[in-house]
Amino acid sequence: MKRKIGVAALLGLLLAGALTTSAQAQCGTGPMIIFNTNSFAYEVPTPVTSPYLSPAGNSLTVVGLVQKFCAPFLDLNPVILVSGTSPDTEFTFVFSGLTSGGTSTATVGSTKIYTTVYSSAGFEIWRDGPPRDAPQTAAAMPGGPPAGAVPGAYKNGTKILSGTLANFTVQVTKTGTNNPNGSYRGDATFTGGTLYSRVQNTGSTLVHGNWCVFGCLPPAGGYSAQVDGKFDTPATPAHSSTWGAIKQLYR
């Protein structure tokens, strides 16, 4: 009987794999969780000044929407619509508790470099709705965060994943007369959430992406960056096991 259940489970997994071909095709290799570009950063208590000067001691928060899940979360579909009126479930993420060590500056060639290292902190990924309540566009972001739906609407529903962020670094550069642009990079380690078992014992993985600081911020004001990016697939396998243990599952 157990063997039949095991075979049925395997067939089910294969079918699920077939149904998720579309999502996998857009993932390629590397990404595990891809962010929507309508994701934004803000700092308190002192505003970040242009192009990116973060006072030491400031607290950085990033709130955003998940655009796409890749393996091992291919069964989750954010189905984000531009209109923001979809009744579907929303997936949101929050980085919080990142304390600025202050911004250092340097110049190389025609490039000015602004580097900010933040203290270790945490992240959370939530599943919520319907209906969706997190802002879906830059225009919908409330001014002067924390305010209105920020960050509350990004931290409600079911916490599917959580963890720690270390070595979180933002580097903004301005080359010649080009607009400034930046990137961020941190080491994420999963530690909890209802779907933690899928990434348990994977070690740390990279969370990183573009950090836009000019011409991309919510018009209501109070934000320091528009963020895209992703959690990468951890380098270590999701589960360490033996053939004996796997066979035991179906006996």
């Binding site: 590397g30 990079r185 573009n210 950090w211 836009c212 895209d228 990016g229």
Partner: peptide, 25 residues
């Protein structure tokens, strides 16, 4: 966009992983 490395997901022979977008500011 971002250009970053090293990471085990970067296939041999490629330099960086890229995450980016095209937008009107």
């Amino acid at each position: 966009g971002l250009a970053g490395r090293p990471n085990a997901t970067v296939p041999a022979g490629y330099d960086n992983q890229i995450t980016g977008d095209c937008k009107i500011l």
